[in-house]
Simulated scan of single mutants.
Amino acid sequence: MSATFHDQVIAILPKLRVQALALTRNRAAAEDLVQDAVCNALSAQNSFIPGTNFPAWMHRILRNRFISNLRKRRDTTDIDDLPASAFATEAPHEDRLALKDLSKAMNRLPVDQREALVMVVVQGMSYEALAEATGCAVGTAKSRVFRARRQLETWLTGEAPDSAEGRAIAARASALSRSLDARLAEAARNERRA
């Protein structure tokens, strides 16, 4: 069991790093959070039931550790932008500006919505696995992702999508969002391979 457990821990590290960065918005704090979560998991490996959802178990440990740390400190450090190394290809200037706007908007989202969006969009986690990892109902998980996407759309377009101009801007933002989703997913895949 021990070798299999350790293999699973190693395999999930890239996803834990992405989740930790989404929660802390600080690379150093994210690495510390992942390290703490892995230490907690290793010390509690006897409580893991083989055959159950290991990724959800690990994400839950990481999230609980983050909450515990928040209660101790009550503040986090913001980052201004995602590092360029997180993307597989160099983005044109317009895309870099859009990524900067997206990063700022994501930092404004409530932690639960930002976490849900990253876990579903970037990591490709199912709503069921997200619900299990965050300790909420599947409907709540879906709602968090929906509200996060809707709020980002509103902030990034600067208009409510009810007007004709707002719908046109929302369509362009949606196309950019799909492009960014693809780049973020590619970055996550590259990190898993590394």
Results as ranks from 00 to 15, higher is better:
residue 120 V to S: 05
residue 73 R to A: 11
residue 149 R to S: 08
residue 151 Q to R: 15
residue 13 L to G: 02
residue 167 R to K: 12
residue 55 P to W: 06
residue 100 K to G: 08
residue 150 R to L: 09
residue 108 R to F: 01
residue 62 L to M: 06
residue 89 T to C: 08
residue 175 A to T: 10
residue 172 R to W: 05
residue 113 Q to P: 03
residue 138 V to E: 02
residue 164 A to T: 05
residue 153 E to D: 14
residue 99 L to M: 14
residue 171 A to K: 10
residue 110 P to C: 10
residue 36 D to H: 02
residue 131 A to G: 11
residue 43 S to M: 14
residue 129 A to I: 00
residue 153 E to S: 13
residue 138 V to R: 14
residue 75 D to F: 15
residue 88 A to V: 14
residue 169 I to D: 06
residue 94 E to N: 04
residue 80 D to P: 04
residue 11 A to I: 05
residue 97 L to R: 10
residue 31 E to R: 13
residue 148 A to K: 06
residue 140 T to F: 03
residue 178 R to D: 14
residue 148 A to Y: 02
residue 97 L to D: 05
residue 66 F to N: 12
residue 153 E to C: 12
residue 51 G to K: 01
residue 168 A to E: 07
residue 112 D to I: 09
residue 86 A to F: 15
residue 156 L to D: 05
residue 23 L to T: 03
residue 1 M to G: 04
residue 38 V to I: 11
residue 3 A to S: 14
residue 25 R to D: 04
residue 100 K to Q: 11
residue 139 G to M: 02
residue 40 N to R: 09
residue 35 Q to T: 04
residue 9 V to D: 04
residue 20 A to G: 04
residue 2 S to L: 09
residue 76 T to L: 14
residue 61 I to L: 13
residue 184 L to S: 08
residue 65 R to I: 04
residue 181 D to P: 05
residue 151 Q to I: 09
residue 170 A to P: 00
residue 4 T to E: 15
residue 5 F to S: 08
residue 155 W to G: 00
residue 147 R to M: 07
residue 192 R to T: 10
residue 79 I to F: 13
residue 63 R to F: 06
residue 42 L to D: 07
residue 160 A to P: 02
